[in-house]
């Protein structure tokens, strides 16, 4: 129910090219594959553990998060993945609902590895504050507009980002 509604709203926001719907559901992560185009994909919950998987440009992120907020999703977590071969950093936002009408939504956006800047969503979800600070710690992604972007888990003078694949201890 809610999944259909959210999917329609997200698809309205992110026009899905035909190639994405025709895709075999494989992740773009594997080496040598071309990055998947933006769009909403419905995933097999039994395999992946979530229902909707939406990839978008980072300009659409705030609008997508606002849609989820309207539909009473809660923020599960925010994290990143370093795709060093493609010279990109991926941001992953997990959302779920306190409801028995289960719908897990994953929002993804990719940014350039040399200049990773995304807008903060702390204006919509106050709880994103720590998650974004943590992602900044680990990947060096800058959340523009974040009220307090200082190291959270790493030491206060840390100038390294340990989850980058080229990090050497």
């Amino acid at each position: 129910m809610i999944c259909e509604k959210t999917r329609t709203a997200l698809e309205h926001l992110i026009p899905t090219p035909d190639a994405a719907t025709a895709g075999d559901g494989q992740e773009s992560g594997a080496k040598g594959q071309t990055p998947r185009p933006n769009g909403v994909i419905e995933r097999d919950y039994a395999v992946h553990g979530y229902h909707l998987d939406a990839q978008m440009a980072c300009e659409q992120l705030l609008a997508a998060v606002a849609i989820l907020d309207e539909n009473e999703f809660f923020l599960e977590t925010i994290t990143g993945v370093d795709w060093i071969a493609e010279n990109q950093l991926e941001l992953i936002y997990d959302f779920s609902r306190y409801d028995f009408d289960l719908c897990r939504v994953v929002l993804r956006t990719r940014v350039d590895r040399r200049n990773p800047v995304v807008p903060t969503i702390t204006g919509i979800y106050a709880g994103a504050n720590w998650h974004e600070r943590e992602t900044h710690d680990f990947f060096g992604i800058v959340f523009s507009g974040h009220p307090h972007l200082i190291p959270l888990l790493l030491p206060e003078d840390a100038d390294f980002h340990p989850l980058l694949k080229d990090f050497k201890a």
Partner: peptide, 21 residues
């Protein structure tokens, strides 16, 4: 290769593991 998520209810709440393989 893929992106997998699993949540469980631990004593302290909803714990989730995201595995990107």
């Amino acid at each position: 290769p893929g992106d997998y998520y699993q949540a469980v209810e631990t004593a302290r709440g909803s714990f989730g593991v995201r595995l990107v393989s």
